[in-house]
């Protein structure tokens, strides 16, 4: 599904990722953990195609295609979804209009018929209910006045509506209370399955109690320094990153 080889990424002329290798096969959930400043968000933004994240070496293949050659919207249309660590507020644009434009852009790309306003609302209502979200949020401007938890749930809602192949969640668990965390986890689990993959970027092990990963990777100073199964996350929780980072440096 996702195949990253020797990825080097510069931001503002400074190299942040120094040769990252990662394979996420279809059907799997991988967790990417690591200390602050290790390059986790840089990886997320690079995969989503944000301006200013320059790939200087290596390659990123998504379903066999070169992801780095695509515009951000093409990546999304092909099935890449990034749940933002800090969802953006857009005054004047209603959630419903925003998401209907997005859903139909993706559907057009996939050769599916566009949803009309009624079909869209029907689908949106159903998904909102499952996420325990207020239907009124559809008519509110995108993320404006949303609490931290509401913003994160709104990301999961968008993810469901867009039906991605590869979901990248950038610290979606941070700042959530336990109830919101469970809802987010259910949202992620609901999208598990063959033909889909998930990359969970997180600082803490907490989310992994609810979304059990197939693999756990540790990112430090722009490289993956260790990979393992779900036990690795528990070990990190107990011991912290320091020893691992030190061992990798020597």
């Amino acid at each position: 599904m996702l195949n990253i080889e020797d990825l080097h990424v510069e931001v503002d002329g400074k190299e942040i990722l120094h040769g990252l290798d990662l394979r996420v096969p279809p059907g799997e959930v991988h967790a990417m953990m690591g200390p602050n400043g290790s390059g986790k968000s840089t990886l997320a933004y690079t995969l989503a195609g944000r301006e200013g994240y320059a790939v200087t070496r290596g390659r990123v293949l998504f379903q066999g295609q070169d992801l780095t050659a695509m515009k951000p919207e093409e990546r999304a249309q092909e099935g890449v979804f990034l749940a933002f660590q800090y969802p953006v507020e857009i005054p004047g644009v209603s959630n419903a209009n925003f998401l209907k434009s997005a859903v139909n852009a993706v559907r057009r790309h996939r050769g599916q018929p566009e949803l009309d306003a009624i079909e869209f609302l029907k689908l949106a209502r159903q998904r909102l209910k499952l996420l325990n979200m207020d239907e009124a949020s559809l008519s509110r401007p995108v993320n404006v006045g949303f609490s931290g938890g509401e913003k994160k749930r709104n990301e999961i809602f968008q993810m469901w509506m867009l039906d991605p192949r590869l979901a990248i969640l950038d610290e979606t668990d941070s700042g959530l209370d336990i109830d919101a965390l469970k809802i987010v986890a259910e949202g992620v689990n609901a999208l598990r399955g063959p033909g889909r993959a998930t990359l969970l970027i997180t600082h803490y092990q907490r989310l992994l109690d609810y979304v059990v990963p197939d693999k756990v990777h540790v990112l430090a100073a722009g490289r993956i320094i260790k990979s393992g199964d779900k036990e690795l996350a528990l070990e990190l929780e107990a011991k912290g990153y320091a020893d691992l980072v030190k061992a990798a440096a020597t």
Binding site: E51, V88, A105
Partner: peptide, 29 residues
């Protein structure tokens, strides 16, 4: 707003459409 533009694009909206959505919002307010 470049962040808003990227957010829209990251959801699959073409850059040209994303720009008009944001201009429209600016006026609609």
């Amino acid at each position: 707003d470049r962040d808003a533009l990227f957010y829209l694009q990251a959801r699959g909206v073409d850059e040209a459409d994303a720009r008009s959505i944001l201009i429209d919002a600016f006026l609609n307010e």
